[in-house]
């Protein structure tokens, strides 16, 4: 039982990382109908920023986690830069396929730039949270895990409040609902898109803090698998829907962690824990085939 609770918490921990990344995917897709393949690599940008800024913060007597401020700034700069330089010109030409290729190219670019700048070998991130383990009813809970889950939940609630209640949040929802009409209503569409990218990238920076607290390493390709799984989470929850990304992220995290732990026993050794990635992508395929709109999505008929 204790092991099961541990695995459950591990799942929620990685799930909240996926959820934050999935939010970035989902918001961008909702507003410009583009799968931002480079989004996973924003986490890598955040992680490298943490590698270099944590020692600075610690040296100046601040807690290590305050380095996340730099990570947010770096990620927002990269995210907005990518949008302005690569996506905007392609978007204005209006070809979805070109936009998708540009996104893939951007992801390649960021990964290889990091490889040239920092080398292919992983760099260690210093310890971020110094929290001792908690024992509740005979189950030892890792302090890092608890704090990660708490940060994830708080950020999601704040984001949901922002999107639902503020003027800018309403503008974002309006643009994703109907772009032409929101122009007529006086919404500055380009500004709103930039804001969406900024928020998405900022979330990726926070996700990179949470991820590095659990797996203290930064390497050029770290974002690609993480990003793909977060994307699966976004599709599972219903792409373009903010609460959907949260649910999807947590579900994918739980599935991954539980399948890693119990797959060998459950299938009698036919499938090993190495198949957990295949299961995550299997979920993607099943969702796309059964309900492409996702758990919270509404099926919309195609206009001809």
């Amino acid at each position: 039982m204790a092991v099961f609770v541990q695995q459950l918490l591990n799942g929620l921990k990685i799930g909240s990382v996926y959820a934050l990344v999935a939010l970035g995917y989902t918001m961008v897709y909702g507003i410009i109908k583009l799968i931002n393949f480079a989004h996973g690599d924003f986490i890598m940008v955040g992680a490298y920023t943490l590698v270099f800024t944590i020692p600075l913060m610690v040296a100046s007597g601040m807690p290590a986690w305050t380095a996340v401020i730099f990570a947010v700034v770096a990620c927002v700069a990269v995210g907005v830069g990518v949008e302005k330089v690569a996506y905007k010109p392609v978007r204005e030409k209006g070809n979805r396929m070109s936009a998708l290729i540009t996104a893939v190219a951007m992801s390649l670019f960021l990964e290889n730039l990091a490889q040239v700048l920092f080398g292919a070998s992983p760099k260690t991130v210093s310890n971020i949270f110094k929290i001792s383990n908690i024992t509740v009813g005979g189950v030892t809970l890792n302090g890092n895990t608890i704090i990660t889950i708490i940060i994830g939940v708080v950020v999601m609630l704040v984001l949901q409040a922002f999107v639902q209640n503020t003027k800018m949040g309403r503008a974002m929802r309006a643009v994703s609902e109907d772009r032409e009409a929101s122009i007529l209503a006086g919404i500055k569409v380009n500004q709103t898109i930039t804001l969406t990218f900024a928020i998405g990238s900022g979330l990726a920076a926070i996700a990179s803090l949470m991820y590095c607290a659990a797996y203290p390493q930064a390497m050029p390709t770290m974002g690609s698998m993480l990003g793909l799984k977060a994307f699966v989470a976004a599709v599972l929850g219903g792409i373009g829907i903010v609460p959907g990304a949260m649910i999807g992220g947590l579900v994918i995290g739980l599935v991954e962690s539980l399948s890693k732990a119990y797959l060998t026993t459950l299938t009698g050794g036919v499938l090993t824990s190495a198949f957990s990635d295949a299961i995550v992508f299997g979920i993607l395929i099943v969702v796309l085939l059964i309900k492409p709109a996702g758990i919270l999505g509404k099926d919309v008929g195609e206009k001809v």
Binding site: L100, A274, F275, D277, A278, G282, L284, I285, L288
Partner: peptide, 20 residues
């Protein structure tokens, strides 16, 4: 599926083939 979703699902199948 088509467009973005097809790209993603082929990516998913490619990864599954690799892992298997």
């Amino acid at each position: 599926l088509k467009g973005d979703y097809l790209a993603i699902i082929t990516l998913g199948f490619g990864e599954i083939i690799r892992v298997v």
